[in-house]
């Protein structure tokens, strides 16, 4: 401000230039305020734009297939008959497998980091986990395709088939030829990918527990396990669920890590070894090759369904995490 006043003193009576300078400053202030406000509104416009454009792009498919699209199992580009059933099924199953593996292990890692880890290692391991959460998903994809899938094919799948032979439900889940790629492998890769997320969010949430509570538990003679189970977990339940939902949102929408190893087959099979597809993998694999309006539009409708599901999951996650943030503040 000083230089503004100084430069204007040379060009006129001081009171006039002063009021002019003040007016200019007030003007800049208003402009900047409105500019930031407009930018904030743009974020809402982006979200609105995404929803509107997806609905618009999906119109031909919505008209052609109606609500039956959600569950229909056919996917035939030649007869232009499409259904989201297998893709939705694959998305849910791979995410479920991933959560079943990653949630217990992630919580274990978080417990380790907050309670068991030697103090010197706590920061390095914590940082390593956060860094790993930032590795792009295509890296997990390429590793899954070249390293993990062959390993699953030669070791894990034959072992699972042998182990559950004759057991009623499990033998159907783990049946069929071991291809290496398929729903189970995709679920595994997703699990490895979201593990750092769950671990680092849970650790942050565990750290919101007031030390007094933990000390009180220890003072009463609780073991570490009893303290975690009866003090830390009840206190942080909301936040842990929020973190898990956030990871679920990631798993549902994850594209590249899954596309490499899912096998891209549009059918629902009871076996986890069978190749399948997910919503995002279908879009990634087929979008640029889709010919005809209905085909493209069916893929966009898949995108709309995915956005809808993840939007709900992420909203719940953020709401729960917001609650624990308020609690700790």
């Amino acid at each position: 401000m000083a230089d503004v006043l100084m430069s204007s003193t040379q060009s006129g009576p001081i009171y006039l230039s002063r009021s002019r300078a003040l007016a200019r400053i007030a003007y800049i202030d208003v402009v900047f305020h409105q500019l930031t406000r407009l930018s904030a509104i743009t974020v809402l416009v982006i979200l609105g734009g995404v929803i509107v454009s997806l609905i618009h792009g999906a119109q031909p498919a919505i008209k052609a297939f109606g609500f039956g699209f959600l569950a229909a199992q056919s996917w035939n580009p030649v007869t232009e008959n499409f259904g989201a059933g297998p893709a939705v099924y694959g998305t849910l199953v791979t995410s479920l497998v991933a959560m079943l593996i990653a949630v217990p292990i992630g919580l274990g890692v978080a417990t380790f980091l907050t309670e068991l880890c030697p103090h010197i290692l706590r920061r390095p391991i914590g940082i390593a986990i956060e860094l790993l959460a930032g590795i792009p998903s295509i890296i997990y994809g390429i590793w899954g395709l070249f390293v993990f899938a062959p390993f699953v094919q030669t070791y894990i799948q034959p072992a699972l088939i042998a182990a559950f032979k004759g057991v009623p439900i499990l033998s159907a889940l783990f049946a069929g030829p071991p291809y290496g790629i398929g729903m189970l492998t995709a679920g595994f890769i997703l699990a490895i990918m979201i593990l750092p997320f769950i671990a680092s969010i849970s650790r942050d949430v565990f750290e919101t527990v007031p030390p007094v509570l933990k000390e009180a538990a220890t003072g009463l003679g609780c073991t570490t396990w009893e303290m975690m189970r009866y003090v830390v977990l009840p206190y942080t339940r909301v936040g842990v669920v929020g973190g898990v939902m956030l990871a679920l949102g990631r798993a549902l929408g994850e594209t590249m890590a899954v596309t490499f190893v899912i096998g891209n087959a549009h059918k629902i099979s009871p076996s986890l070894f069978a190749p399948g597809t997910t919503i995002s993998a279908t879009i990634a694999n087929e979008f640029t090759e889709a010919v005809g309006d209905i085909y493209t539009s069916a893929l966009i409708e898949l995108g709309l369904i995915l956005f809808f599901i993840t939007f709900i999951v992420l909203s719940i996650a953020r709401y729960l995490l917001m609650r624990i943030e308020q609690k700790s503040a």
Partner: peptide, 18 residues
């Protein structure tokens, strides 16, 4: 916060459309 973890493939579809 939701856009932060929304599936990026959907953003691709959006840009394709517009």
């Amino acid at each position: 916060d939701i856009l932060l973890s929304a599936p990026s493939i959907v953003i691709g579809l959006f840009v394709y459309e517009v």
